[in-house]
Structures are given as C-alpha cells and as structure tokens.
Design a binder for these strands. Structure first.
Length: 106
DNA sequence: TTCTTGACAACAG
DNA sequence: GCTGTTGCCAAGA
C-alpha cells in the first residue's frame, strides 16, 4: 500500500540530500523503490511546488549534468559547495550522495 | 483506448 | 565526450 504517492516519496528523499552533495534521478528512484521510474522523478520535481523548499538543484541526471534550460542550478550547487568539472558537469566522483548508506569506514 | 511527450538511464557507434 | 536509439512508466490530449 502506498501510504503516500510516488512524488511525495521523492520529495522526502530529495529533502534529505545533504549540502555539498547531489543525487541522480536514478538514485532517488532506486531509494523510492522504483529504479525504473527515474522519469517519474523528474516529473515529480517539475510538479514540485516551491512550498516544499526542495533542493531540487541537488538533483542531476546520471551524467552529472543539470536540467535543460536551468543554468541557475549550477550556480546554486557551486554555492552549496558542490564541485564542477571544467566541462560544466557536476563532479559526481566527489559530490554524489550515497543515500543513507553506509557509514562505511571505508 | 491510442498516440505523444517527458527536469531520465543505459548502451552502441 | 557527444549523438542516436531503446526501454521504462505515467499523465495528458
């Protein structure tokens, strides 16, 4: 049973993304329980009202690229502390959010 | 009900 | 790294 809608679940996860890190649509979809619904994540974000104050700028695609027509996202991420590659992509190698995982020691 | 579109992901060239 | 194609699922016309 779906206690909450898919988009609601996405918002919840997105809100958990720490500053200085980013998550991919596939990551959010996976954590929400539907690894194949990465597109719905984007749909949910597009429908996400500003009331949610979601750090949607921390959500990027699998390649670390920002959303189309959204140049501000890069500026926001840079202020958050996210590193960018010289080609304009997010440095997922460093800023990719692991999503509650591991506290692995290494 | 069918077709199109979409803030995507993954693979091939 | 970029482009083209395929697969996935949902919402809208």
């Amino acid at each position: 049973m779906t206690d909450i809608s898919f988009d609601e679940l996405i918002y919840k996860i997105v809100a958990m993304i720490p500053r200085g890190q980013v998550a991919t649509y596939g990551q959010l979809a996976f954590l929400s329980g539907y690894p194949q619904r990465s597109r719905m994540v984007g749909q949910a974000m597009a429908a996400a009202p500003p009331k949610r104050k979601l750090p949607c700028h921390r959500v990027v695609n699998f390649a670390g690229r920002t959303a189309p027509g959204w140049k501000e996202q890069r500026e926001l991420l840079e202020k958050e502390g996210v590193l960018f590659k010289p080609n304009g992509y997010v440095d997922l190698d460093i800023c990719l959010w692991e999503g509650f995982l591991p506290e692995i020691d290494m």
